[in-house]
């Protein structure tokens, strides 16, 4: 009796043996295939919808793509009109928002992660409510800002700083949550190693935890800012739907932004303005995609090093 024959002889069938299945059984059963197809269809529908939207918007706006769009101010003549003031307005508002939001958001997250005593009810209440704030509709933040400005007797409310405050309130919870995630992903061994060398908690936070969290903070902040860049509602409440024909030069200047300019043009009766709205939308989309690309690049470069 050769060993080969011994090996090929069937093993005794027990309940623990692998069950043989046909082609249309298990993961290939009709039910499984139908569900799989349904999942694919959902995905395809979403992607297709986005593609159609992008293509039609591009086709609508393609005739208006010219340097006029970037270099000229809004005008009652569609041939002369451009989104220069809106583009610069967006840059001003987003830059101001970033300057206000990132330090406050990071500081809040550092407090919550590294210093707050989680046994105290107020710290837990703050945590829950930061999560809740992230779900508040954006127009509410516009109304809050409007209310505060009115209470302060500020008549000119359509100014860069007011818009930036509204957008800051809107994205602050997002920045806080993203920063907390980044801080939490720093291994505890790093903190312990630092403390065991006689570093204070401040030094540990400042020299170890925060530098290690920068990629996560940067990614989260950029994504939050790109959301703010696409927002129109809170700014409309502040009265940003105006005809701006100058470059903002300070945070107290009036402004328009790209989503508001789009909204403005889209509500005009003339076809040419609709085309301008489409062209501006595409420009906004390109900017947002660029920001997201930067965020993804940062994330990939600084992937987990532990």
């Amino acid at each position: 009796m050769s060993s080969t024959a011994h090996r090929t002889s069937p093993a005794p069938k027990t309940s623990r043996g692998l069950k043989q299945t046909g082609f249309f059984q298990g993961e290939r059963s009709p039910a499984a295939l139908v569900v799989l197809f349904a999942l694919w269809a959902c995905l395809a529908f979403a992607v297709l919808f986005l593609l159609v939207l992008l293509v039609t918007t591009f086709l609508d706006g393609r005739e208006m793509f010219s340097w006029h769009l970037i270099t000229d101010y809004a005008s009652s003549d569609p041939e002369q009109a451009g989104a220069r003031a809106a583009i610069l307005g967006s840059v001003w508002v987003i830059a101001t928002t970033a300057v206000m939001t990132i330090p406050i958001g990071v500081a809040a997250a550092v407090y919550m992660e590294e210093f707050a005593d989680h046994n105290k009810w107020w710290n837990r209440a703050i945590e829950v409510n930061v999560q809740n704030l992230a779900a508040v509709p954006s127009i509410i933040y516009g109304l809050v800002t409007l209310g505060v400005l009115t209470a302060l007797n500020i008549v000119q409310r359509n100014i860069v700083i007011a818009g930036a405050i509204a957008l800051s309130l809107l994205i602050l919870p997002v920045v806080i949550v993203a920063t907390r995630e980044a801080i939490r992903s720093v291994p505890n061994e790093i903190r312990q190693g630092s403390l065991a060398l006689g570093a204070t908690q401040w030094q540990t936070t400042w020299r170890q935890v925060l530098p290690s969290s920068v990629p996560g903070i940067a990614t989260g902040s950029i994504l939050a800012l790109s959301r703010a860049m696409g927002e129109a509602a809170p700014l409309l409440v502040l009265g940003a739907l105006v005809f701006v024909t100058f470059d903002p030069t300070s945070i107290f200047d009036q402004f328009s932004t790209m989503p508001i300019q789009t909204f403005n043009w889209a509500s005009r009766p003339q076809e040419e303005f609709h085309q301008l709205a489409s062209a501006t939308s595409i420009l906004l989309l390109v900017l947002l995609l660029a920001m997201n690309a930067v965020a993804i690049t940062i994330r990939n470069i600084y992937e987990k090093r532990w």
Binding site: P187, E189, I190, Q192, G193, S194, L195, A196, L197, G198, A199, T200, Q208, P211, S212, R305, W306
Partner: peptide, 18 residues
């Protein structure tokens, strides 16, 4: 903090800083 400066510690898992 002063105690830990005088009495150092090496951990189970090597934890060099990044």
């Amino acid at each position: 903090i002063e105690v830990r400066r005088r009495i150092g510690m090496v951990f189970q898992k090597a934890n060099p800083f990044p």
